[in-house]
Design a protein around this nucleic acid. Structure first.
Lengths: 117, 117
DNA sequence: ATAACATATGAACAGATGTTCATATGAAAG
DNA sequence: CTTTCATATGAACATCTGTTCATATGTTAT
């Protein structure tokens, strides 16, 4: 038994650990949850989402608004779309993006409350 | 004027953009918000936080519970602590960690709702 | 004091992530 | 149908991030 493993069998509070284990969601769910937060965890994407709080915007609008390149915005919108955080509506040459659902507002709102303390 | 810039001055919906700009939080706040979500955006840290939903746990408990090395857990707890998501209580050789406040539960809860759809 | 133990920390390394550049796609106008 | 424009996408590159390994710190028991 290696040094590292030793600790795990001596100091562990077994009853507590077992109680907690029963309540844990599946690994898959926890992985998905982390993936979701990862999407929010980039300031470019947060800025895009926040911009969409107020209005439906095309790629160009977002790029100018935030001082970013069209390419960078497009790449990030792709990620937001894949994760169902934004929706796309095509209108001629333009593609207008908007928030996908109210969860996005709620999650960002909660985060902002925490940050503002 | 380069090809990329051209788009920004032709297709932009100026009035909408200006309206949105007025409502945007400061860059600093948006950066902090992204940093916060970045902390939630890792499955090891999410697992640790979820484990702490149920009970106060020492480093060893968490390591065994999640099948991780003591070192990895310790590093992640450090990040969680710096970002005020967990609190540490020292008791002899052990250090017990617990959730810092209810925001953590709320943010994770909202995220989970989104994932479970 | 010294040994055993729980936790923390620094350096190194591998893998992930975001931007840029070049180019492709698809739609409207001439 | 060719050009122009708005958007999308792939590859390359630099940076960031998480784990491991080695070791340090601080606490309890002998």
């Amino acid at each position: 038994m290696s040094e590292i493993e030793r600790c795990e069998f001596l100091c562990v509070h077994q009853d507590t650990v077992e109680k907690v284990l029963k309540q844990m969601p599946s690994d898959e769910k926890l992985y998905d949850l982390a993936e979701l937060f990862k999407v929010f965890g980039d300031s470019t994407r947060i800025k895009i989402l926040y911009a969409l709080f107020e209005a439906e915007l095309c790629v160009c609008d977002i790029a100018q608004l935030l001082g970013l390149s069209q390419t960078a915005v497009s790449h990030q919108l792709r990620i937001l779309k894949i994760n169902s955080l934004v929706r796309a509506r095509k209108d001629g040459k333009n593609v207008f993006y908007s928030l996908a659902d109210s969860h996005v507002r709620q999650i960002i709102g909660q985060g902002m409350e925490h940050v503002e303390e």
